[in-house]
Amino acid sequence: MLLRTVEAPLLGATCVLVVDSDARVAVVDAGGGVAERILRIVDREGWTPVGVLATHGHVDHTWDSGRLCREWAVPLHVHEADAYRLAEPFGTLGPLGGQLRAMSDLPGPVEPPRVATFTAEPDAPRPLDVGMTDQLEAWHLPGHTEGSTAYLVHVDGVRTVLTGDVLFAGTIGRTDLPGGDERAMADSLRRLAMLPGEVQVVPGHGPRTSIAAELRSNPFLRAAH
């Protein structure tokens, strides 16, 4: 598989284009302000869109999902525990939601015409069928939100995990927002810490890293190991 990342104008959320060996593309975390750029890239490269995925339901990671889903007539895939957030993208964030609405001059989010929920489990990654030739796995890692999900793919033979807002370079996602759970986050980090060190990490914000690098320098992952 091939990965290409685009940084969203809204809070710098990382949008990831996952492209398989048959030039089919799934877009993970279409944050605020990325839609036009993603449409241009996909059209220029001649890729075939098969779906949009969300690592979790926070609006800075789903803002432009509905636009892409409508343009391509594809579903939005999200863990069933976070699907409720799509109908109330600001209200489910508590006070932060109102702040985001006020700070952005972007066109407001629109609901995708079709939502495909799934029930990935926390015990281990499971294959998720999104219409791609190469395997994509979903791993339920709650804590930041109830339905937070990591996606695992192989890029040039190297396993790569898209962690959303569970794990960042040097730190982790918040657990103090509605739906956050500190204990669940600790369990999720323990599971991530068990991955081989060579696994590459693409977080929902900030630079890429690896499990090995985070076990050396990230106090939260080290504590969970």
Rank of each mutant, 00 (worst) to 15 (best):
T5L: 09
G131A: 08
R67T: 10
R4V: 07
A116D: 13
R114K: 14
V59Y: 00
V115E: 10
R191L: 15
H225G: 15
A224V: 00
T117D: 08
A150F: 06
R37T: 14
G157T: 10
R114H: 15
E71D: 12
E182A: 15
Q99V: 02
F220G: 05
D20C: 07
P142W: 05
G98F: 08
P9V: 03
L93F: 07
P127H: 09
D29H: 10
R159W: 11
T171H: 12
A193F: 11
D105F: 08
T117C: 14
H205V: 13
R67P: 06
G12Q: 06
A223C: 11
D20N: 07
V115P: 11
T55L: 02
G98Q: 11
Q200Y: 06
V59S: 01
T160W: 07
T133I: 08
G180E: 08
R191I: 09
D29R: 01
A73P: 07
G108Y: 08
G98W: 06
L10C: 09
E137D: 14
V42K: 04
A120K: 01
V78D: 01
Q99D: 08
F90P: 03
G173N: 00
E71Q: 14
R114M: 12
D20G: 04
D176F: 11
E121L: 14
A26L: 02
P107S: 12
P75I: 02
A30P: 06
L192M: 14
F90N: 06
F118V: 10
G94W: 03
H225Y: 13
A73N: 15
S188L: 04
G164Y: 00
V130M: 01
R208C: 12
V166R: 05
G97K: 03
T62Y: 03
D60G: 04
P125T: 09
G170Q: 10
A212Y: 11
G143E: 02
E36A: 15
R44W: 10
M1Y: 03
H225N: 14
E111W: 05
V19R: 06
L195P: 00
R114A: 14
H205E: 06
V110W: 02
G94P: 09
R40H: 13
G94H: 09
P203Y: 00
L86I: 13
G98S: 12
L76R: 03
L10N: 03
D129C: 02
L141P: 05
G108C: 04
P75G: 02
H154R: 15
R4M: 12
G91R: 04
V153P: 06
H205C: 07
P142C: 05
A184S: 13
C69R: 05
V166F: 01
R4N: 10
V42T: 06
L177M: 13
H77S: 07
V59A: 01
T149C: 02
V153F: 00
V130C: 00
R40Q: 14
F220E: 08
V50T: 12
A150K: 04
S210F: 11
V19C: 08
T14I: 15
Q135L: 13
L17K: 00
L68R: 04
T5W: 07
D181T: 03
R174Y: 09
P207E: 10
R159Q: 14
